[in-house]
Amino acid sequence: MKRYAPATERNRDPIAAVLAEELPDEGIVLEVASGSGEHAVYFARRFPSLRWQPSDPDSEAVASIAAWASEAELANLEPPLRLDASAGRWPVESADALLCVNMIHISPPEASEGLMTGGGHILKDGGPLLLYGPYKEPDVDTAPSNLAFDESLKARDPRWGLRDTEWIDALAAKNGLARTRRVAMPANNIMLVYRRT
């Protein structure tokens, strides 16, 4: 039932370091596309004053998240929700922060569009939306390993692939979100931080 994502152990501490600087002291953090659920357990344990709400559109992922959560028995870790970022309505009314790790490039553009629309609706003023993953940036050479990764993603599904940060920024702006920070992360990933204006 439990899934394992090898990258989770490698990236969870660098991600948590940025979260510690950007998340509010209390409230609800909605994690979109929680995948295996390993991050949700780790971050809920790391930030006990925050309520962590994992979600995923895939029923097997939701089952994996539930299995990890059941084993962890953390009071601040909510049961996982079925949430498709591209859906018009989300099963969450509001959140104090929104985190999305490694979804943007492994999903069709509609998922990114929906993520920004949803974030614009549910975040309170000043609430952060944090995006982690590999991107293409203007005036920044894309690492050869990321170019190869981009090609492999497009071979699996032509709707997938590394997105341009300019496109992400434009989607954010359409939904009342402005980028406030870019953080270089290990393995040629970056963290983009947006806030509700």
Rank of each mutant, 00 (worst) to 15 (best):
R46G: 04
H105Y: 15
A87G: 11
R89P: 00
I104Q: 01
A72V: 07
L115H: 04
R51H: 08
L115C: 04
V41P: 07
G120Q: 03
L77F: 14
A72P: 02
S59I: 14
L99G: 02
A63S: 14
P79I: 12
Y42K: 05
L74Q: 06
P48H: 08
A67V: 11
A87S: 15
G118P: 00
D84K: 02
C100I: 01
P79C: 11
M116C: 08
Q53D: 00
I65E: 07
P109N: 10
S94T: 11
I106N: 06
I106S: 11
M116K: 01
W90P: 05
S70I: 06
S55Y: 02
M116D: 04
F47Q: 02
E71F: 10
R82T: 12
I106W: 05
T117F: 01
E93N: 09
H121C: 03
S86Q: 12
D58E: 13
I65A: 06
E113G: 10
P80A: 10
S94C: 01
P109L: 14
W52T: 01
A67L: 09
E38Q: 15
G118H: 08
G118K: 03
A69G: 12
N76T: 14
G118N: 06
D56N: 09
A69Q: 01
L50T: 03
E38D: 12
V92R: 00
W90H: 07
F43A: 04
V92I: 09
P54L: 15
A67T: 13
D96V: 07
F47L: 09
I104P: 04
W90Q: 05
A69N: 03
